[in-house]
Design a protein around this nucleic acid. Sequence first.
DNA 1: TTCTCAATTTGTAATGATTACAAATTGATA
DNA 2: TATCAATTTGTAATCATTACAAATTGAGAA
Lengths: 143, 143
Amino acid sequence: MMTVSVGDFLKSHDIKPSYQRVKIYEFLKNSKEHPTVEVIYSALNPEIPTLSKTTVYNTLKVFIDKGIAMAITIDEREVRFDAEIRMHGHFKCYKCHQVYDFEMADQTADVEALDGFQIMERQVFYYGLCDHCNQKLEEVEKQ
Amino acid sequence: MMTVSVGDFLKSHDIKPSYQRVKIYEFLKNSKEHPTVEVIYSALNPEIPTLSKTTVYNTLKVFIDKGIAMAITIDEREVRFDAEIRMHGHFKCYKCHQVYDFEMADQTADVEALDGFQIMERQVFYYGLCDHCNQKLEEVEKQ
DNA sequence: TTCTCAATTTGTAATGATTACAAATTGATA
DNA sequence: TATCAATTTGTAATCATTACAAATTGAGAA
Ligand SMILES: [Mn+2]
Ligand SMILES: [Mn+2]
Ligand SMILES: [Zn+2]
Ligand SMILES: [Zn+2]
């Protein structure tokens, strides 16, 4: 198993690895929850008391420009972020509001309606009840 | 060919067909552009000078609740609306910012990662260059 | 080491879409 | 015609995001 430091990883993507950038990337990479700016800021603020929310916004914009993160607009009200940039779908539970990843077959070829279009990005959002919340609902209905 | 008035259509979906609601629904139904609240408001304001933007927001919320319209969050900054509620994908051109519809095979069954999840809504967003803008780009490159 | 300067970070104010809310209007029914 | 709930309207509040200018940082120069 080969390990590359976050600093080297950022450098290899033409991003100067400042203290804040390293911490923000580490948090995003280790997070499974697709955090918002607010969540990232609140999580890192205790450790970096001088952190500014503007820095979180700026840094995420840099990550996206350099291709090591993506924005997820599955919520109407707030943008979430993801350090996993391989193609995958997102499911949002109406009840617990969690956002789950799911694997997806690449169905680019399926879309003959888009002949001549150059597809550069794909977002697939599903909504409903996650297995956990769905389970609880069924138990209630059984009564 | 059978025609039902917009008023009757709204009534059949449990929506009282006020003047504003009829006009807003007609505009949305006839529009191919997935308009924003601002676009709808600006388009109808000349005809309905007393129209309030709040009414546009309220009315669209009613349409969505009653299942005759849907919100499209393909833009990070502003929500677009669509009176076409059959399942279809959306493509947004980075250059001309138009949003195109495209037909899509229903691939619900494909997603075995979501066993136990109850999928209630699906949104598929593609981004890139539309055929028109892509064409123009190729012509420039040819020179 | 100290200096310099561009890149980065920070704090504050502005922006803009959306929502909250209360008053005015409408329109179906009595 | 009177009533009253539903709808519409206008204004203010909210809140995520952006703009911007000042402060800080840190890598290389001297
Ligand atoms: Mn993800
Ligand atoms: Mn559409
Ligand atoms: Zn859930
Ligand atoms: Zn285009």
